[in-house]
Design a protein around this nucleic acid. Structure first.
Lengths: 160, 160
DNA sequence: TGGAACTAGTCTCACTTGCAACCAACTATA
DNA sequence: TATAGTTGGTTGCAAGTGAGACTAGTTCCA
């Protein structure tokens, strides 16, 4: 009665299994789970902490605000991650000369060593997942991803 | 010093902007945000509630356990969503004849009407996002998604 | 038939995170 | 140089969620 009769003009049933946001969330959380198992279990970092370290590893220095903007993570979350990492001696904070409100962050030697250890493991796991796709499809997938990001304006990030 | 000298054999720097889990999470949350704005703002449903309704709309009836399995959502989350939806009169609970522990769930008339109203809006928004990709790339993207799901074993769902 | 092992669903607890209020420091305008 | 508005960062609070204990009901098998 629901769909076999009458005018099926409008799709009024939905299947979660083929519904884009559901699929993306499920995939993203599985991929994150596998990656964060590396830095989480072995090194006791959570996702926000990892993002801070990765940003600093990539940029050298950054303010909390810059990390907020580039990771699209809430500033209170970043603030807490920064506090925890400082506590553990993995990053260093230094007042900015030009703006007394800002605090410039950088990896400590200890943090830098840690990242040199973790990053190759994490990138290897990322590669292993992407390699489940044949090369052509992998390229297409990544370029579609890029196009969606641009189109949804997710890529507004200051260049390094 | 870090990368311009010596052996760059191993990649020890990371750029979040090109890091798969980061990109997937960001995309998934943006896509979810846009879709859930529809059923959230206008109809006061959260994501777990939406998942329950969508599953029931698609299957007709289901137990909480079946919804847990097919949505990969924690059973306590589903339990709360079911309670809220029952409270609002959108779904009905009926003890199972064959198994006294189970409760069979189905949309109420009110819930069915609601879904007939929401689903076309939601699907239109999903289509609008996918249509930002040209047809060929869209196909490739979706089939890569499927392949990743299979490969990561995310698709173990009972058939309808 | 009488446990032992298992399953469906609820509930409590702890943890994470977003919101929003807040403080301190900066900028612009008069 | 006083004042209003803005911005960087922190913190208290509340909401949402997962882990896991718990209850009730079922299945299995001696």
């Amino acid at each position: 009665m629901t769909q076999s009769s009458g005018k099926p003009r409008i799709q009024s049933q939905i299947r979660l299994a083929s519904f884009l946001p559901f699929r993306l969330n499920r995939l993203a959380s599985e991929v994150s789970r596998r990656i964060s198992a590396i830095y989480g279990d072995r090194y006791g970092l959570d996702i926000p902490e990892w993002r801070v370290l990765a940003t600093l590893s990539s940029r050298g220095t950054a303010t909390a605000q810059a990390i907020v903007a580039s990771t699209r993570t809430h500033k209170s979350t970043i603030s807490r991650a920064v506090a925890a990492l400082t506590q553990r001696g993995l990053i260093e904070r230094e007042g900015s000369a030009s703006d007394g409100r800002e605090i410039v962050l950088r990896l400590s030697d200890k943090g830098d060593e840690l990242m040199r250890e973790i990053v190759p493991l994490v990138l290897a796991e990322e590669r292993a997942m992407l390699n489940r796709l044949p090369a052509g499809q992998r390229r297409e997938f990544l370029s579609a991803l890029t196009r969606l990001e641009v189109s949804l304006e997710l890529d507004e990030e200051e260049p390094l």
